[in-house]
Amino acid sequence: MTTSLIEVRGVSRRYDDGPPALHDASLTVAAGESVALLGPSGSGKSTLLNLLAGLDRPDDGTVTVDGTRVDRLGETAAARYRRAKVGMVFQFFHLLDDLTVVDNVLLPAQLASTLPRAEARRRAAGLLERLGIDRHSRAYPGRLSGGERQRVAVARALMNRPPLLLADEPTGALDSASGEDVGRLLTELNQDGQTVVLVTHDLALARACATRTVRIADGRITAPSEPEPVR
């Protein structure tokens, strides 16, 4: 039987007096899936991602990730949840420019305090080697290309072995070649068993690295899925 990693049930989120950013949204994601959330700007994609990350709370409904009721978490518990269960990759990398590549990757382990220092360094070195950027371990992010910086961001997101990887427009700030490179990387990670939820405007990226696509418009999930794309 396939195990569900994510269960979103009847979720709505409103801001101010405008229309809801999400309205009665429900979504199930199995462990090991790679799901792309597609839709225009303002459709509710990033709102849903923020709810999964525990960065926001729904007004109605429930959000469960890997057995944790995320919608019930307070600020401190949500921070612990993110450190343990979620890796996040953003459009603009959010690397710390005054830290070296390896120190950026080590940061989640240092915040979580779950690994001895030597083991954390071995883990970081292994990730950088796996992602093909180990030669840049002592460099600073500003000296890297956009595609290389995004690989560092992915390594940092995977540092604590999270069951869920969230990617918000991960190729939006990259040129076409670097974007395709990151798409291949996400595909490889998913083929190795990593669960991925990806927000993108890019249908080609979704078809390349997602096993399922979910369309969102005006805060509503309008098309739950499409057939598995050919990789």
Rank of each mutant, 00 (worst) to 15 (best):
S176C: 01
L22R: 08
A125S: 13
T76D: 15
L164M: 06
N104P: 14
G42P: 08
R138N: 09
R122H: 12
V197P: 07
Q191N: 09
L107R: 10
L22E: 08
A157N: 04
E7W: 07
G142C: 00
H94T: 04
E75L: 10
V86S: 10
S145Y: 01
V101N: 11
G32P: 07
P170W: 02
T171M: 01
L186G: 08
S176E: 14
V105H: 10
H94R: 14
M88Y: 14
L198F: 07
L128D: 03
A173I: 02
D103Q: 13
A120K: 02
R207M: 12
P162D: 07
S41K: 00
A30C: 12
A204L: 04
G39A: 06
Q91L: 01
H136W: 03
A157Y: 09
R161W: 02
N50C: 12
L164Q: 06
R14V: 10
S43H: 10
D175P: 06
L205T: 13
Q150E: 01
P40F: 02
S43N: 03
D59I: 14
D175A: 00
D168N: 13
L38C: 13
Q150T: 09
E188L: 09
G87V: 02
R69K: 06
V65A: 02
D24W: 04
L189N: 08
R161Y: 05
V214W: 06
H23Q: 15
R14E: 05
V29S: 07
L49A: 12
